[in-house]
Amino acid sequence: MKNILIIGATSAIAQACARYWLQHSNDCHFVLTGRDQQKLAAIQSDLQIRGAVAVDCLPFDLADESGRASLLERVEQLMPQLDRVLVAPGSLPDQQRCQTDESYAAQAFQLNANAIVLLLERLAGKLEQQRSGKLIVISSVAGDRGRMSNYFYGAAKAAVTTFCSGLMMRLQKAEVSVSIVKPGFVRTPMTADLELPEKLVATPEQVARVIVDGAEKCRSVIYAPGFWLLIMTIIKLIPNFVFRRLSL
């Protein structure tokens, strides 16, 4: 049996990953965490009908510190050993508002960076103790280089990416793999209000395939879809005297 813990299970990308796992093994047990119980219940029945052996839901708000402290114990009761841990939560704050509204900016940064890395630290301890498992963390291409259109979001994701890079080295010793996922544009509720360049937009299903396949192969960095590796390599190579004149 494959024991899969999904933090932020209401994410469209996370849901697609869960379904993709189910297509490949008929003995998955899921523990889903999230804020919205109604949505979690909908995902629970969906995954059960799609063939999951068991699906448990845990109410959990990433922003709530005390919840974070007790999370692992609650998970432990439902799922003593974790084979896969997918960490999906994230929110895309309005950059303009971040520039003028400090408490809004702080809240977004707090969620996308602080709360995520502190949770990751707790999860890492557990996985290290297990000496087995795979940790999959959704960061973003936005963390590869700060851009004027979303540097609050990008900086928070960069923190997650850098953090995971260190975690990867530490957990290697315990034979736990860490995969940092960097999606490009994906059609999900997070991007529902944005005008995205049609040709570059992927569906959650496409991205999920790349994520799960990559994680199973213990890839450290997963661009999803893969062509974003090329795009981001080019973007990173642009010298600053040119880059600062662009309007990206």
């Binding site: 469209a12 909908a42 029945s45 969906d46 009908i49 799609r50 059609r187």
Partner: peptide
Amino acid sequence: RGLDRFIKL
């Protein structure tokens, strides 16, 4: 198309 969950079987 994005509303794609099974509810009850």
